[in-house]
């Protein structure tokens, strides 16, 4: 695969992720029914609990909570495996692989032939890293798979994120897809005109020119968007309508999140 195909594949992957998220956010599951503010606070607290825990079983328990939240929100473990578990295992797993041989401690086993010592502490630290990363990644993906992005952003207001930042994040997200489409069209049209293979240096020139064109287009786009905003009466002030309503289920789940996180903090010390 050359650079054009690889780049197009990563664009496709991003769009696929966004479509998955949009579909799942519409499903009728537990997390989808919750007020986004409660979800943001609850999931963030669980992520911090997993990050703080000093005991493996506590991190495992938070992972089990994440898994049950996923199942009750109609997020299939298969999708989680494809989007989170396998990529995380490939990335963090490789990083953690040498830890049992490098971290000093009590030797529990030796690699046959080579005789390298494997330590208990090294094995434990590799497990800490992998379970912690898997748990936190599962939780953060659950948030986005069960909530439309615009509502996640609005919910960030409870964490005192400034309105202007929330608006910029919302607009940036929208323009990501426009620019992805623009970049995809550019690369596709170039690919359709290609016969044979390009040299490495031509590939690099093509990549730099594509980014350059995209950048010029973006700057022009920002001017156009600004003019459109002015035409609609924009004076530099941004407002946001908060249309959240909490129901009994939200308060109940907030209490559940609080108890679970408190438990994880207490037992994980």
């Amino acid at each position: 695969m050359n650079f054009l195909e690889r780049t197009l594949a990563s664009f496709l992957n991003a769009v696929e992720h966004a479509l998955d998220a949009e579909d799942l956010a519409k499903a009728d599951g537990l997390l989808q029914r919750l007020d986004p503010r409660i979800k943001v606070i609850g999931i963030l607290t669980l992520i911090i609990a997993a990050a703080t825990a000093h005991k493996l079983w506590v991190i495992g328990a938070v992972f089990a909570i994440a898994l049950s939240l996923a199942v009750s929100s109609r997020v299939s473990p298969l999708l989680l495996a494809k989007r989170v578990w396998i990529p995380v295992l490939l990335f963090t797993g490789i990083i953690a692989l040498p830890a049992p041989f490098v971290i000093p401690g009590r030797v529990v086993w030796r690699l046959p032939e080579l005789g390298w010592p494997m330590t208990a502490q090294g094995l434990l630290s590799a497990r800490y890293l992998v379970t912690r990363v898997e748990t936190a990644a599962t939780l953060s993906v659950l948030l986005i798979l069960s909530t439309p992005w615009t509502r996640v952003l609005k919910a960030l207001r409870v964490l005192r994120v400034p309105v202007v930042l929330v608006v910029i994040l919302g607009m940036a997200y929208r323009y990501i897809f426009l620019l992805l489409e623009s970049a995809r069209d550019m690369l596709e049209s170039r690919r359709s005109r290609m016969v044979g293979e390009l040299k490495g240096s031509d590939h690099r020139r093509l990549a730099a020119a594509s980014v350059g064109v995209l950048m010029s287009k973006t700057l022009q786009l920002s001017g156009d968007v600004y003019s459109a905003m002015l035409a609609r009466g924009f004076h530099g002030e941004v407002y946001m309508l908060d249309d959240f309503h909490t129901a009994a289920l939200d308060w109940m789940m907030l209490a559940v999140f609080a108890v679970l996180a408190a438990g994880a903090f207490y037992y994980g010390r």
Binding site: V164, V167, M171, L179, V238
Partner: peptide, 9 residues
Amino acid sequence: VPLLAVMAA
């Protein structure tokens, strides 16, 4: 607002 949004994108 618009410049940062599109540049971030």
